Simulated assay, not measured.
Amino acid sequence: MIETPGFIVTVLAFIAVIGPLVFVHEFGHYIVGRWCGVKAETFSIGFGKEIAAWVDSRGARWRLGLLPLGGYVKFKGDMSVASQADPKWLELPAAERAQSFPGKPVWQRAAIVFAGPAINFLFALVIMAGFALAYGENVTPAVASKVMAGSAAEKAGIRAGDRIVAIDGRRIDRFDQLTQSVFHRPGELSSFALDRGGRTIILPITIGVREEKDRFGNHYRFGQLGIRSAAPVQRNVSLLEAPGVAVDRTVSIVRMMVETMGQMVTGRRPLDELGGPLKMAQLSGEQADRGIEDFIFFMALISINLGFINLLPIPMLDGGHLLFYAIEAVQRRPVSPQVQEWAYRSGLAVLLTVMVLVTLNDLSSFGLWKSLSGLIG
């Protein structure tokens, strides 16, 4: 059973995760904006009621909001925190127009917007590189040293000594790659390519399912093949190699996110597995309870997730802005205000719908609906 820590630890852990990552994301926008000569008017961590604020020497207001679920940088010329251009920016004096966000070339606006997700990935890469330097890289070959009785591997015909070389056409070199590929595919039918004594064998395998539950009764489903590796093989990673190892791990995580999203879109994975802020808080507390190393690695995962989600081409997100800038660069004129307004409203509707969905999922996972039904009954 997965244990969960107390409420206070969970809240503090959540703030310790989301606060720095939001700051890092928004600081990416802010610092590149400064390099491009854009004046920042507000730098906010959190939304809602202001609980603390100060104004720096450049006139930017740095504030802390009551709800630590995001943040924003409002530049001169922005009409809202979503970086919609204020039509009145054209009425500003020439010197102020030169400092406004809408007055910059499209490539500079794109660089400022892209900097947020990019620095989230960079933050994660630094952590991954640090872990590689500290603990090395696991290069255990993807060889089945032992096949568990009654497992998916045994049922499919995998034998001890078989080496898994590919899953659904994707090359597998290490045992950790095999584990990652199987982990998020519970119950799925996949094509495994094996090397058995120099011969290549293709086996269709329905990946097994391992279930765990926490103290709230929430069930978690993981893919499981049912083989064990030989003794782990660890190699030291040099300072020059660490960035490459970090990039490899980050790419693997992003690929897993893309595949998981595809599973949800196609219905192969239920939408009730999609979690929101409450679930993230719970996971933050669990990782903090397991130790500082697990907690820091969890921060890297969330940072990658934050960067990835923000690059989705949805208006209101950074990816939506980048899509508009790409269109502007091709057609050599901005997307019309009417189209942008329609897109932002649609994007907001999508985000609010997803937020309601994940919040309902979170409340359901904590057993709220069961408790209410018990009270009504």
Rank of each mutant, 00 (worst) to 15 (best):
G244V: 05
R268V: 02
A115H: 10
R269V: 05
P277H: 06
A118W: 07
Q282N: 14
E273R: 13
D176G: 01
R228N: 06
D86K: 03
N120P: 01
A124L: 03
L90A: 13
P204W: 02
K88S: 15
R215L: 10
I164S: 07
V354C: 03
G223W: 00
L311G: 08
E41H: 13
G71Q: 01
W342P: 02
I112A: 04
K74V: 12
F192H: 00
E26S: 05
R269S: 13
L12P: 09
E293W: 12
D294T: 15
I292R: 08
P93L: 06
T206C: 10
R249S: 14
V81A: 09
A13E: 11
L283G: 08
L352N: 03
S100R: 05
L348F: 14
A110S: 09
L239T: 11
Q99S: 08
A230C: 08
R63T: 13
M79N: 03
P313M: 00
M128F: 15
I314K: 02
Q287W: 11
A115W: 08
M148Y: 10
R333N: 13
F101I: 02
E188N: 05
Q287P: 13
E286L: 15
G244M: 05
A153W: 00
F43E: 02
M280S: 08
L66N: 05
I253F: 14
A281I: 08
T260G: 11
A94K: 15
K49H: 01
V9K: 13
E41K: 14
R58K: 15
G77I: 10
Q84C: 02
G37A: 03
A152I: 00
I302R: 07
R235A: 03
G208S: 09
A118I: 10
S373E: 11
W62D: 09
L194M: 03
G48H: 02
L66F: 09
G377E: 10
G77M: 12
P204E: 06
D86P: 02
S100Q: 07
R174Y: 14
I31N: 09
R221E: 07
I15P: 08
A111K: 03
V339S: 12
V330N: 11
D294A: 15
V113A: 11
V126G: 04
G285V: 13
T353V: 11
A193F: 00
V358I: 07
N305K: 12
F183Y: 12
V81S: 05
S336W: 05
V38Y: 04
T206F: 06
G319K: 12
P20M: 06
I8P: 00
K49Q: 04
V17T: 07
F366L: 11
G291N: 06
N310T: 08
Y30Q: 04
F7C: 09
L348Y: 05
F27C: 10
V143S: 09
I119G: 01
A60N: 13
A193E: 11
L357F: 11
I309N: 02
D162P: 04
G226P: 05
A144E: 00
